[in-house]
């Protein structure tokens, strides 16, 4: 078990007791991971921030019903953020909106050139595959946690993730080839 999970274990009881300190601590531990995931899903930093806040507000309401350890807590939050993202995407679909390109708060040196290509490559994936890739490679969730978030069995997660990774790798490589040849 990693350090963050162990730390979350310490706060799971506090969450059930609706301790303010527990909420602050859990927020500090996972907010960035949640924001990264939501940003990848929505490509809109503001909307992603709203999704993160909404997840914690929902947790504050449902805390007394929460069961499980730190790992389950983290999965719960990711699941909530995913639901919020799906709602937002559905709203956009109804309004025929195109998502706003996200500019990271602290973009790395490669971000400016790679971000559009990464988004374009992710767009070629289905929603499920895109979600799996983001959970695994952006937020760093384990296969077990992803299985909980996605309500899939672990073998199903691994199978789908492998297919998604292959397709994403092919897309990213083709983008790189085009860039180098240009």
């Amino acid at each position: 078990m990693g350090e963050p999970e162990a730390a979350l274990d310490d706060w799971a009881d506090g969450i059930r007791r609706r301790s303010e300190d527990a909420f602050r601590a859990v927020y500090a531990l996972v907010a960035d991971e949640l924001a990264s995931f939501a940003t990848g899903m929505l490509r809109d930093r503001r909307a992603a921030e709203d999704a993160v806040q909404q997840a914690f507000l929902e947790l504050s309401v449902a805390a007394h019903r929460f069961k499980g350890d730190g790992r389950a807590l983290r999965a719960w939050l990711f699941k909530s953020v995913r639901f919020s993202c799906l709602d937002e995407i559905r709203r956009r679909g109804r309004r025929q909106e195109t998502p706003t390109e996200t500019i990271p708060d602290r973009p790395g040196p490669a971000a400016a050139t790679e971000l559009p290509e990464v988004h374009a490559a992710l767009d070629t994936l289905s929603e499920r595959h895109r979600t799996l890739v983001l959970l695994r490679h952006v937020s760093g969730l384990s296969g077990r946690e992803i299985a909980t978030v996605m309500r899939m069995s672990r073998p199903a997660v691994y199978a789908a993730l492998t297919r998604a990774e292959r397709r994403l790798r092919a897309e990213l490589d083709s983008h790189q080839l085009r860039r180098e040849s240009a």
Partner: peptide, 20 residues
């Protein structure tokens, strides 16, 4: 395996954290 995806990682700004 996907270093390109690191461009998607974000950190919430302090004032956003405070507001949340």
């Amino acid at each position: 395996t996907f270093p390109e995806l690191s461009a998607l990682r974000v950190e919430l700004a302090p004032h956003i954290r405070d507001r949340h």
